[in-house]
């Protein structure tokens, strides 16, 4: 279980990015963090994976506090961030240095097969399309079998068709080992298509505005009325998070100015 306990983050320049965010994510659960820009989604993710330290509060996975990048937590960034001087196979094996070569190669081959890129191992990252590169980035984080995988708007730079296909790929990958997924997105449809729960964040400072369960059966039909209804609920909450005054924030005028 992933627990966030009263997380606060204030940057050195005085920006208060997060204000007492507490959240429990069960093992194997898929949670989508939704919110307008500047609501601290990315900061939250960076705190969970230990790339940044909270100003107050703590992150723990299965009771173990995360104070630095942790082997149980993997991360996929908004861009693929593949290392251009390593082949696709070497990129996937980047975090598997501790394994013997035989097992490493086997895991890489399996991973490539699962994302439909078998045979792409010896290629260079520059030879991949955006969607292929992001698939490689996802399996690079997943081959180490993390307990939790964090994704920071992983599909936002892709066209709608590629995005939908990658969302399916992600679900298939998740199904194999069922790690906890925490997905940051600004795309409500993506949240409803993937997540068990949508957490709507409110900006300035970032705090949890709503916690919406999404218990639609899987596989989800994006055209069903239930799907549309769930989308409407999340959108409503998102609207509210941006228009309702933040109890911890400053006056409304500066908030509105800041949002735009």
């Amino acid at each position: 279980m992933l627990t966030l306990d009263h997380l606060c983050k204030t940057y050195p320049n005085g920006t208060q990015a997060l204000d007492h965010v507490s959240l429990c994510v069960n093992a194997g659960e898929i949670v989508a963090l939704v919110g307008g820009s500047g609501c601290g989604k990315t900061t939250l993710l960076r705190l969970i994976c230990g790339l940044e330290m909270p100003s107050a509060g703590a992150v723990a996975i299965d009771g173990e506090t995360i104070a630095a990048p942790h082997p149980a937590v993997g991360i996929v960034f908004q861009e693929p961030r593949l290392l251009p001087w390593l082949t696709v196979a070497q990129n996937i094996a980047f975090g598997l240095d501790h394994l013997p070569k035989g097992e490493r190669d086997q895991r890489v081959d399996e991973a490539l097969l699962r994302v439909g890129l078998s045979g792409y191992g010896p290629r260079w990252p520059r030879e991949l399309s955006g969607g292929q590169a992001q698939r490689v980035a996802i399996v690079r984080a997943l081959v180490a079998n993390p307990k939790a995988l964090l994704l920071d708007e992983p599909f936002s730079a892709l066209d709608a068709l590629t995005r939908a296909s990658l969302q399916d790929h992600l679900l298939a990958l998740w199904d194999a080992h069922r790690p906890t997924l925490v997905l940051v997105t600004h795309d409500v449809e993506e949240a409803v298509a993937l997540a068990d729960r949508a957490i709507v964040l409110q900006p300035r400072p970032g705090r949890i505005f709503a916690d919406i369960p999404l218990d639609l059966p899987r596989p989800r039909d994006r055209l069903s009325p239930e799907f549309a209804e769930a989308k409407r609920v999340v959108l409503n909450a998102l609207d509210g998070s941006l228009t309702q005054p933040n109890p911890a924030g400053g006056n409304k005028a500066t908030q509105a100015a800041g949002w735009w």
């Binding site: 790339l51 990048p69 082997p71 991360i75 960034f77 961030r81 290392l83 980047f94």
Partner: peptide, 11 residues
């Protein structure tokens, strides 16, 4: 910086 961060994320 983004590439360096990948290295950090992989400890």
């Amino acid at each position: 910086r983004k590439i360096v961060e990948v290295g950090r994320a992989f400890r």
